[in-house]
Design a protein around this nucleic acid. Structure first.
Lengths: 146, 146
DNA sequence: ACTTACATTATAAGCATTATAATCTAATAA
DNA sequence: TTATTAGATTATAATGCTTATAATGTAAGT
């Protein structure tokens, strides 16, 4: 099914008049098959063996284009590097405060909150984001046994 | 009541053995009386008239100390500068995608989500954050009339 | 083959934040 | 009072992620 997503993503790129260059294809494929939420630098380093002369700017450029087309999502966390997520369905993230691990968390979208926020603030709400913080199982164990 | 908060904050500082320097006092007071959520640079610029020789590092240092003592909270938003909030009660934020305005949004804390997240992920959740994005009234109006 | 637009590369620049070293200040002890 | 010491501030350099720039490369259509 990752293969399906890749094909559909490539279709979207073609329709938008964006060329499927080897580097772009590689960035896209890496994100679609990755179970984690890699940073730009992680993607860059992972693709270095195949593309030794690729520039970091190429990674950033392609991430921006993929994001603009709605094929991936950027997760921003303060000073740290952005992370990129090819799962564009609605979901939240749980983040380990010790090791930084990020896992997806599916939960019914909080539509009520959005409508209440609109009422009390007068804003026109388009979306929201939520992160839950804590310690993952691995890091909790370490804390206990140490 | 801002005066009360200031006095209590100063007490906390004294108890922790932190000196109440004029610069530190000014940063603290500025945050407590500010209705917005200023950045470090905004604080720096606002205090410049009173403290022409103050260093940005001083602002950052004091913000870090105030944060470590739990007197203020840091709000991080991707590449943009962090913002600082002297309201340390549980609340969420609504952010205008056009002008960047941030307003507080009080809503019953989502404890259910935290416990469900613990069950499905095995994490030990400590807290969560949520931001709602949209257009504020001012920016919505502009969009209509332009 | 020519033109044109898009991509990539290499590198410089930008910006927020932190680290470093020197100077200053204030409290305490002699 | 003076000396000592720890903490604070200042000025500046350094860091790290990301973006901008300019030059080169590549592919598609006329």
């Amino acid at each position: 099914m990752a293969e399906d997503k890749l094909q559909r993503a490539i279709e979207t790129l073609k329709k938008s008049g964006v060329r499927i260059t080897p580097q772009r294809h590689a960035v896209l494929e890496y994100l679609l098959t990755s179970k984690s939420h890699p940073t730009a630098d992680e993607i860059y380093k992972a693709l270095e063996p195949k593309f030794p002369s690729m520039s970091v700017a190429t990674v950033y450029n392609n991430l921006r284009i993929l994001k603009e087309l709605g094929l991936i999502r950027e997760l921003t966390y303060g000073d740290d590097s952005s992370r990129f997520d090819s799962n564009i369905t609605d979901h939240y993230h749980i983040i380990c405060e010790d090791c930084g691990k990020i896992v997806d968390f599916h939960y019914p979208t909080l539509d009520e909150i959005e409508s209440l926020a609109e009422k009390v603030s007068g804003f026109n709400i388009s979306h929201h984001r939520m992160e839950l913080y804590g310690k993952c199982e691995d890091c909790s164990e370490v804390a206990v046994t140490s």
